[in-house]
Every structure is written in C-alpha cells, then in structure tokens.
Design a binder for these strands. Structure first.
Lengths: 211, 211
DNA sequence: GACCTTCTCACCTACGTGTTAAGC
DNA sequence: TCGCTTAACACGTAGGTGAGAAGG
C-alpha cells in the first residue's frame, strides 16, 4: 500500500486518499539509529513530532482523523553492547486508546488545507496520568503510531464505521525512560529546539523542525 | 431571567439550566470602571477571562456550548475628560461568528464537571487574522459576550436548533487599541498574571485569577 | 552489581502583558 | 494638532528538553 519511497500511503477503502509523512528525512535518520522515545509519568512528547499531510480527499465530504499507537511485536527489549536485543516476553498490551484529532470532524477541504499535527500527544507509563491526548504504553517495548481516517461526521459512532488505517515504518520506536543509545540523544539534542541548551557551541541546525 | 445577584441565569427554553459567571467580583470591579478590552491585529485575549459553570443540565443529554460577542448599541465611543462619550454612529456590525467550545458535543455530566473556559478566545480588528477562536470586532465600540447552549450532539445543524442564550451585564466592555482609562490599566496590571512585570514592587495580589 | 525508573535542575521555546514611541 | 493604530520592547507565565543523581 505504499509508494516507492514509502512516503505516501494508499487505502483500499478509499483509493484516492493519500497521506504523506512530514519530516521524512528526520524520521529516517532516527529510524536508522533505532528511534527511542521517552515515556514518563507526567507524559512526554514524541520527537520528531508526528505530522501528516492529506491529499485526494473528497473536498466536501466530512472526515474524522484518529491516531493510536500499537505494539509491533510480542517482545520486551534491552540495550546491550551498543545494540537492542530481545529480553523476554512483552507485557500484556494495553487496550487501544484512540486519540481523535481535535479538528474532527471537518471537510476534506479543511483537512487538506494544512499539515495535520499530532505533535502535542504524549507518552505516559502511568495509568493515573493517562488522560486525553496521552498514550499509556510500556517502557522497553516497540511501538508503531498509526493514522485512521473515517468518512463521517458522527463522532459518537466512529468505532462502528469503516476506517482507513495507515502507518509509516519509519515511525516505529522503542520506549525508554532514559535514552540508551548516545546516537539517539545526539540526534534529539541537535534537532529538537527545546533541547537547544544541550547543543555544543557550534550553533548549527538552527533551522530544524519547529514544534 | 437572572438571580438576585446577577450571577445565575435561567433560560425559558430549559428552566433547570443554570449558568454561573466565574470571577464575578473581578468582573464587577472592572465593570464599575467601564471595562476596556484591547483589540489588535494578531488578536488579544480578554481579561478577565470568560469562564462559566453549568448546573441543572440533564446528566445524560448531549449539549453544545457556543460563545459570541455582539454589539450593545449603535454608537461609536471616545474617551474624553476622563470618561466615555458617544462619538457618532457605529460601524456596521460584522456578521455574528459563533465560537463552538472545543468540548462540544459533550454530556451534561461532562459540562458540569468543571469550569468551562473561553479564556483563550481573542479579539481582533483585522479580517485577515480572523481565524477560529478569534472575534472580529471594531475598536471604540461596546460589546457583550454571550453564551449559547444547544441540546444536541449534531454539530452540523446547530444553527437550525433551538438554543438558550445567556449574557452577563457585568461582562460588557468597550474595545480599545490602547487603554484609555488609567484605572482600567491599573486593574489589569494588578490582576493579570501575565502583566506582573508592570506591578509596583509592593508584591500584593499574588493570588489573582490564573489564566 | 546490573538494570531500570523517578526526581530535580538549568536552559531553552512559545507566547501573554502593558508601555512607549512612531506612524498615519 | 488631535485621535487612534501599529510595531517593538522588556518582563512575565507556562511548559518542553536531556543530564545527572538518587532510588528501587
């Protein structure tokens, strides 16, 4: 279902619909080093932020857009000798929790007008802190963010309706409470504006993805 | 339709519904000095923030809550000799633009659970900057914010459905681009946390309304 | 000890304030 | 000149960073 470069996704349900992952180069640099995302009690944003662009929607039809994060496999991982290794069976997967993008419902025209951003969602490992916009997931597990598109403006019956589900392999990540791979923390510091305080005095990368 | 102290409002459409203005004392101190609100091109928040509390809703019914801002009279005003005076006819009123509270639609139970805040809405005098959550209004005119409650979860037909409309006389204000009355700017500085930098070194009023 | 989590911190981004001076 | 608007500014609030120490 993907285009040659993996940037676009096509849904069998809605063959015209196209979804394009933003900051693709950045995602691929992280992915090549095995992306890590911090998970914390109060919740931590993802970096890079999850942002997509839609095209091929019916301009006048109404759509809802959702996001969720699902397990990629049944393993628990550990970082050992500079690499990731399997370290036993996964914790039982927590019930999927969909996050409805606050623009929902909106017309295809509105969705396609500008980039749709999920950069404010947070990852938490604490049930008590798991409120709307926070995904409750386990540390040391591999996850995949996904996008769901539902052609409807009835928010109350979304779960009953057919949906197009799309995911980008570049966005798979392992959750950690502290970064394990120095290459990852280096990429974070170099590209996340909020971590600018940790950059070496060189002063490059002033134009990276803004939040 | 109001309770003796003007704090509660009752709708003929839904006699059980009660709406209570928050920060009533603060609003009344501003109102006594003739409230001014800054209107700017990029948009300016109101202070005090517009916040209400609902009670008497049907716990399980679905409601949408909207806000708008309407002209109080047909005059343009000017500040002269320490007071406000009429200075000609009003500019033609701009088409009413409803702001749907992002919690909509939600159950009565959800609406009554916590204070419903519109403190993030902004006032602008520029068509180009008038996006969702911004009210386009004229400077030097008098306005009244209002709340609308619609018993429905169908966002697409809200304008066709019966609504309960409520307004608090304490929240009437005159728009300005620069504060005219020193008493108003003093009240703003003393009570708005974001203006703390302009307070005299006394350090009082540390516990005023937070945004 | 080994491994992972939690807390606190300095340092940033982002943006809400009234004031002031310049603009029209 | 007068009246009003705009833009730049210093100074706040609010909250997003990874590092490092402490805890389990």
């Amino acid at each position: 279902y993907s285009s040659p470069n993996g940037q676009f996704f096509v849904s069998p349900l809605d063959p015209c619909l196209r979804v394009e992952l933003q900051d693709l180069q950045l995602w691929e640099r992280f992915s090549a080093a095995k992306t890590e995302m911090i998970v914390s009690k109060p919740g931590r944003r993802m970096f890079p932020g999850y942002r997509v662009k839609f095209s091929g929607m019916d301009q006048k039809a109404k759509y809802c857009v959702l996001m969720d994060i699902v397990s990629v496999d049944q393993h628990r991982y550990k970082f050992q000798n500079g690499g990731w290794a399997i370290a036993g069976r996964a914790e039982p997967q927590i019930t999927q929790n969909f996050y409805l993008h606050p623009t929902s419902p909106a017309s295809g025209q509105d969705w396609m007008k500008e980039i749709v951003s999920f950069h404010k969602v947070k990852l938490t490992n604490s049930c008590e802190h798991a409120t709307v916009g926070k995904f409750l997931i386990h540390s040391m597990h591999r996850y995949q963010p996904r996008i769901h598109v539902v052609r409807s403006d009835d928010v109350s019956t979304l779960h009953l309706q057919p949906r197009s589900t799309l995911s980008f392999p570049q966005t798979v990540f392992i959750t950690v409470t502290v970064y394990q791979n120095q290459e990852i923390s280096k990429l974070k510091v170099e590209n996340n504006p909020f971590a600018r305080g940790f950059r070496t005095k060189g002063g490059r990368n002033r134009n990276a993805q803004s939040t």
